[in-house]
């Protein structure tokens, strides 16, 4: 029953994301740089890498559901995060068949999936008129700070969860 821990952790991350925004010092919020916590995406990716086997889709399903919940709670447009997280995680799912499970790979994949998700978000939000930004501005002000801050988050949670997720997976396997 360890797979129930996954949505629970994601729910905690969902709540903490909004708290984290308040901890950003004022000097940074005044500057135009935008840091978006994509913690749900990062954690879903770890699930995908360390918990999922070839035929299971826990990472993608959890990521998509909590992406949609994130939007219901924090934005008034539903479906955009759902799509962005879904596509980013599915790409990673395709790549994991080729790649190994280790830190370097997860580092690389987190960077890739955040860049993909951010570009989808940017594209759809500009399409519906939520934002008005040139691609250059977007990359400088939002994409780079967001990617860096989420890699920082990966560095923090990786030691806690990488082994643990594999362990949970093995325990679930035994029950079956």
């Amino acid at each position: 029953m360890r797979f129930l821990y996954l949505p629970l952790t994601l729910l905690i991350l969902l709540v903490l994301e909004s708290v984290a925004v308040r901890f950003i010092p004022k000097s940074i919020t005044i500057s135009d740089l935008i840091y978006i916590p994509h913690w749900i995406l990062v954690f879903s990716l770890l699930i995908l890498l360390f918990y999922d086997r070839n035929h299971t889709y826990h990472g993608i399903i959890n990521g998509v559901i909590f992406g949609a919940l994130f939007e219901l709670v924090y934005t008034d447009l539903v479906g955009v995060y759902l799509l962005a997280y879904g596509i980013a995680l599915y790409l990673v799912h395709l790549l994991t068949k080729v790649l190994q499970q280790n830190f370097a790979v997860s580092f690389l994949l987190v960077t890739l999936s955040i860049v993909v998700a951010e570009f989808i978000l940017y594209f759809i939000y500009s399409l519906v008129g939520q934002v008005d930004m040139t691609v250059n501005q977007f990359v400088q002000l939002r994409l780079i700070p967001t990617t860096l801050s989420n890699i920082l988050f990966l560095l923090i949670i990786y030691p806690f969860f990488a082994k643990r997720l594999t362990k949970w997976q093995e325990e679930d396997q035994q029950i079956k």
Binding site: S18, P37, Y125
Partner: peptide, 13 residues
């Protein structure tokens, strides 16, 4: 009680 993490939406709860 919270500020939207998506800062393109300036919303608080």
């Amino acid at each position: 009680i919270s500020r939207s993490p998506e800062q393109w939406f300036d919303q608080v709860k």
